[in-house]
Nucleic acid binder design. Structure first.
Lengths: 210, 210
DNA sequence: TTGACAAAAATGAACATTCATTCTAAATTA
DNA sequence: TAATTTAGAATGAATGTTCATTTTTGTCAA
């Protein structure tokens, strides 16, 4: 071994290497199209190590699911803790999700795009996970305080965040070729103001009796 | 074979039996968790027949994808052809999707919920399929004609339909236990009017002269 | 500092199982 | 009788998992 050989160029802990490789493969090819051997090759570790650390293929997925959900949860918590109106908090969450979609798209893809129930046994669907529940609670709060129009909580949350999720989905699918943050202002505007143009010429109050 | 034997109790054409069984299994367990043998057993046909008719597992998925997309396409076409405003057409599509979600949820689940790219090779993601493109074209028309607020077309379509898709998603995931049509009115109202209460602490009808 | 040794971690060939697919014979139909 | 369709056992490739072996790490006495 030569004196001047570089020190280990990739000293990251093994479990981290495995998870990083698995995340990339799962997101790009889908969980079921990735073999443990694929992960092993990309992570440059042995099969045995994977079984030592995670107990198997599903174990990798579970660990990823847990860690990424924690990250998402922290993000939501930090926004909720800020001193903002409910509407501003909602917007900020969307803003952060859009940024993540550009800079750490694999995380977003795994958390929002994948059908975990298809490969992680006995995990509830992602939208019933903690951070999503917290978001709905926040929306409910906004309705109680009169800041947001009152509807069934699930309807309200769906309307507020549905457009954002849809855009993220299409961006990940390659249907949108602009970075999402460029669309942020339009989305926020449309979501809160509504998509209808109030029949001009006629004053609002007259036109809106359905 | 006895004289009085019942005539074939299930005279549906074989390919139809196969597709029906496959759809049910794919939606309930996920494509990759279903084996050809599972389909064969539920459809009560032989393995050979499946390969004769569809050429293999992926062939079944492709056929399902095609036929269901045709159905969806026809639905969209029929709505677009009606003599309605653009907004009414959008609403009607949502209304029909909600009905389908209750009465033919497997179709909706397969078309909207599944990641086809993960098991159908060389199929573009579903949101770039014909009916979805037609919907976006319709939205663009509404913006051009001044009926709908003008935004980037993808943003506009996402805001208008994002809430509905989100609710369908949650309904299929079991997070919503009421039939979606019960939420239709609220959703439509929220989508077009927007979620913000114009502050002023003034009664609703007066407060909305934006 | 060196060497011996025990504990822990990593390795990867071998194994066992699953599952898509094939193929020939039997059944059905024309 | 010929042609077509169906049946399902057999096949083999893919892949999740195990485990005996090797390598590394940490400890301590000389």
């Amino acid at each position: 071994m030569p004196y001047l050989s570089r020190p280990d160029p990739d000293p990251k802990p093994m479990d981290c290497r495995i998870l990083t490789a698995a995340l990339k493969l799962f997101v790009n090819h889908g969980y079921h199209n990735v073999s443990v051997h694929d992960v092993q090759k990309l992570a440059d570790v042995s099969i045995g190590s994977i079984y030592k650390h995670f107990g198997g293929k599903e174990g990798i997925a579970k660990a990823l699911h847990e860690r990424l959900l924690v990250e998402m949860n922290e993000m939501v918590d930090s926004v909720i803790a800020q001193d903002l109106t409910i509407i501003e908090k909602c917007n900020h969450i969307i803003e952060l999700l859009f940024e993540y979609t550009e800079t750490r798209c694999e995380i977003i893809a795994f958390i929002l795009h994948a059908n975990h129930t298809e490969f992680i046994s006995s995990k509830p669907p992602i939208c019933s996970a903690e951070p999503f529940q917290k978001i709905r609670d926040m929306v409910q709060l906004g309705m109680d305080s009169g800041e947001i129009q009152s509807y069934d909580c699930l309807v309200a949350a769906s309307v507020i965040f549905g457009g954002a999720f849809r855009l993220i989905h299409m961006r990940l699918d390659g249907l949108i070729d602009r970075p999402l943050p460029e669309l942020y202002d339009q989305l926020i505007d449309a979501t809160w103001k509504g998509m209808k143009i109030e029949d001009d010429s006629v004053p609002q109050k007259l036109a809106s009796n359905e």
